[in-house]
């Protein structure tokens, strides 16, 4: 066997590919499902928290800041293990899927809140004054004047952060969520071959390369923000 044949046999073995591609596809489907759920719920929650914070109530802001700090400081895997293994002892049984979704939502919400808040702060005070002087209320000013401008400035960092957190769906493997990486490692141990892992890697590339590329383009388009 030549070196090349051995390489192909280890990482791209056709028989293994044929046998396991349905598993990989179903894993990819689960990964997409969690990813979309996390993106929608995480960003909405983050935006809601940022809006809440802009009202400037001390009693509400302190918990928001603590929440954001906590979720920025703790590895998501730690939170996943606490919820997944701790809650059943209290009689609360959540599926791995649910735990993964909850934890990633909270993490994304924390980062999104911070990014939106920075965006809101970056809108000049004069915009608030102009809008208020025409009789728009606080909430109306936020929705029609401030947030549209803030969002433009947050698009690039938010995209990058969202990609990073969405990739954490792979952590579902640790708690038995049948997502892509989990399917691949399971298949790998049955097939005693690295091909399923390579398939998963390629699936991740197909899924994320376009988003990474889009994030790069957005970053370039909004690069003036830094100056």
């Amino acid at each position: 066997m030549t070196r090349f044949d051995r390489f192909i046999d280890t990482f791209f073995k056709p028989e293994v590919m044929q046998q396991y591609w349905p598993d990989i596809v179903s894993g990819l489907f689960v990964t997409c499902q969690i990813a979309i759920l996390v993106i929608v719920s995480g960003i909405s929650l983050g935006l809601a928290l940022a809006i809440l914070r802009s009202y400037g109530f001390k009693v509400i802001n302190l918990p928001i800041v603590i929440f954001v700090d906590l979720l920025r400081a703790l590895p998501p895997l730690v939170l996943i293990l606490i919820l997944y293994f701790g809650l059943p002892n209290l009689g609360i049984n959540l599926s791995g899927f649910l735990v993964l979704w909850m934890v990633l939502t909270l993490v994304l919400a924390a980062f999104a809140e911070e990014i939106f808040w920075a965006g809101i702060l970056s809108v000049p005070e004069g915009q608030w004054q102009a809008a208020r002087s025409t009789g728009l209320g606080r909430f109306q000013t936020l929705i029609y004047v401030v947030i549209p401008q803030a969002v433009r400035m947050t698009v690039a960092p938010l995209t990058n952060r969202t990609i990073a957190i969405t990739k954490n769906t792979a952590l579902g493997m640790v708690i038995g969520v049948p997502e892509l990486l989990n399917q691949a490692t399971t298949a790998q141990s049955f097939a005693a071959n690295a091909t399923p892992l390579m398939m998963a890697t390629i699936a991740y590339l197909i899924l994320f390369i376009p988003v990474v590329y889009a994030g790069r383009r957005l970053e370039k388009a909004y690069a003036w923000r830094r100056h």
């Binding site: 000049p124 004069g126 208020r132 025409t134």
Partner: peptide, 14 residues
């Protein structure tokens, strides 16, 4: 405020 118009030094257009 709606009854009182205000024009700013820095325009503050959206």
């Amino acid at each position: 405020r709606r009854g009182i118009g205000m024009v700013f030094q820095s325009f503050n257009l959206y």
